[in-house]
Simulated assay, not measured.
Amino acid sequence: MIQLQSVVKQFEAKNGTVTAVDQVDIQVKKGEIHGVIGYSGAGKSTLIRCVNLLERPTSGKVIINGVDLTKASPEQLRQSRQKIGMIFQHFNLLKTATVYDNIAIPLKLLGYSKQEVEEKVKKYAEIVGLTEKLASYPNQLSGGQKQRVAIARSLSQEPEILLSDEATSALDPETTDSILDLLLEINEKLGITILLITHEMNVIQKICDYVYVLEKGKLVEHNTAIELFTKPQHPTTRKFLNTISQRSLPDSLIEQLNLTGAVIRLTFVGESTGKPLIADVASRFHVQPNILAANIVELKNGIVGNIVVHINGTAADIADITRYLTDNGVQIDVLGGTANE
């Protein structure tokens, strides 16, 4: 449904040409939720604006439902844009218009009749939970309610694709969760494909099927959410994961503990999360694993568990233990320690 092929976006600056997006390839299938994550300045906002050509790529292709928008006629581009909704970090609501009128604005511009406008406004206000707020003004709403108005406004045009540009960044954690739940509901009930950008790993964790990691305009890693959380390859990805899960211990702590044996991280996913493998290791290999840190991360499509343990044993013992755990579906990473001979 969405294909970006070798997309490049450059800007001219005082010091020369700046490449904000550099040879990025993305493919989003119908009905999926994909997320692009990166730090400030990574090129995320520029990238998502290339999808509906709010920013026209310097080179590359943007293909929506088989139509390359970079080569589309003005009329083709207009028709394609009508099928793409977009929500922003700061809501972009008219302060002097009611909730009803804010949702109705694009419908009136598209020439819908008064009755059609009323039907659509009420329908999508109900979906986002704002039926009782239609006569209110933006300054009477909370941040979460304002974002719901913006979402209803986008949905009122009945798009096939919804683009989210840091839509939860200005919200508190509890409100963020409620908006993410709403996006999940929209995806599941209306079948709308969602592409979002964020710098918050918890957003990726909660709703994304597939993830792209962007750094300095380049795509440095991409994978399913489950694979990315269990087997991150790039340092930037690992930094993001460390913000929500205890995947490692500070080097200073490992050195301070002066541990013999090995400090290892066990990553559990799927069926392995329900097995008493630590207890099995203790009884089978006659060791006493010392749990230093642990957490569970619930993803949209599964659960990932991380446990950092110290095991005091010989190099041969550690090899046998890691082999046993690997055979039972656990991913092993050695973080430190000095194995006994």
Score class of each variant (00 low, 15 high):
residue 181 D to E: 14
residue 106 P to Y: 11
residue 220 V to A: 09
residue 200 E to F: 05
residue 169 S to A: 15
residue 118 E to S: 15
residue 202 N to A: 11
residue 177 D to E: 14
residue 194 I to N: 00
residue 141 L to I: 02
residue 169 S to Q: 12
residue 170 A to P: 09
residue 142 S to E: 06
residue 117 V to T: 13
residue 201 M to R: 00
residue 111 G to W: 07
residue 212 Y to C: 10
residue 107 L to A: 09
residue 203 V to N: 03
residue 172 D to H: 09
residue 223 N to L: 09
residue 159 P to V: 08
residue 122 K to V: 13
residue 166 E to Y: 10
residue 124 Y to W: 12
residue 154 S to W: 04
residue 198 T to E: 01
residue 199 H to G: 05
residue 225 A to E: 07
residue 151 I to L: 09
residue 114 K to G: 04
residue 211 V to Y: 10
residue 110 L to R: 14
residue 226 I to F: 10
residue 166 E to R: 10
residue 199 H to P: 05
residue 221 E to F: 07
residue 110 L to W: 12
residue 134 L to V: 09
residue 152 A to C: 12
residue 143 G to V: 05
residue 221 E to N: 12
residue 135 A to I: 03
residue 167 A to C: 15
residue 148 R to N: 04
residue 227 E to L: 07
residue 154 S to D: 06
residue 189 K to S: 14
residue 204 I to K: 03
residue 225 A to Q: 11
residue 191 G to N: 04
residue 219 L to N: 14
residue 137 Y to E: 04
residue 226 I to M: 15
residue 208 C to V: 01
residue 143 G to P: 14
residue 219 L to Q: 13
residue 223 N to M: 05
residue 168 T to C: 04
residue 99 V to D: 00
residue 98 T to F: 10
residue 123 K to F: 08
residue 181 D to M: 05
residue 183 L to Y: 05
residue 104 A to N: 02
residue 222 H to Y: 13
residue 192 I to Q: 01
residue 215 E to D: 15
residue 174 E to H: 11
residue 137 Y to D: 03
residue 173 P to M: 08
residue 150 A to D: 11
residue 97 A to H: 08
residue 98 T to W: 04
residue 111 G to R: 08
residue 117 V to S: 06
residue 195 L to Y: 01
residue 160 E to D: 15
residue 108 K to R: 15
residue 119 E to A: 14
residue 147 Q to P: 00
residue 149 V to P: 00
residue 216 K to F: 13
residue 101 D to N: 11
residue 221 E to H: 11
residue 147 Q to R: 03
residue 115 Q to W: 01
residue 146 K to M: 11
residue 204 I to N: 04
residue 190 L to Q: 11
residue 228 L to M: 15
residue 191 G to W: 05
residue 187 N to W: 06
residue 121 V to R: 06
residue 208 C to M: 06
residue 198 T to N: 00
residue 163 L to Y: 04
residue 120 K to T: 07
residue 121 V to P: 01
residue 219 L to Y: 04
residue 213 V to E: 10
residue 112 Y to G: 07
residue 140 Q to L: 13
residue 146 K to Y: 03
residue 186 I to D: 06
residue 162 L to P: 03
residue 216 K to D: 15
residue 209 D to G: 01
residue 139 N to G: 02
residue 190 L to V: 03
residue 187 N to Y: 09
residue 181 D to R: 05
residue 216 K to W: 07
residue 205 Q to P: 10
residue 165 D to A: 09
residue 194 I to W: 00
residue 96 T to G: 00
residue 144 G to I: 02
residue 155 L to K: 02
residue 115 Q to M: 02
residue 149 V to I: 07
residue 97 A to D: 01
residue 111 G to V: 10
residue 126 E to A: 15
residue 139 N to D: 15
residue 226 I to P: 01
residue 111 G to Y: 12
residue 170 A to E: 11
residue 178 S to I: 06
residue 144 G to L: 04
residue 220 V to I: 13
residue 99 V to P: 00
residue 130 L to A: 12
residue 99 V to I: 04
residue 97 A to R: 11
residue 169 S to K: 13
residue 149 V to W: 00
residue 131 T to M: 10
residue 168 T to F: 06
residue 204 I to F: 03
residue 98 T to E: 03
residue 167 A to N: 14
residue 172 D to S: 11
residue 186 I to E: 08
residue 200 E to Y: 05
residue 116 E to S: 11
residue 139 N to C: 02
residue 182 L to G: 01
residue 163 L to S: 10
residue 117 V to P: 11
residue 121 V to E: 11
residue 115 Q to T: 13
residue 196 L to R: 00
residue 204 I to D: 02
residue 124 Y to L: 07
residue 188 E to T: 15
residue 226 I to A: 10
residue 106 P to L: 07
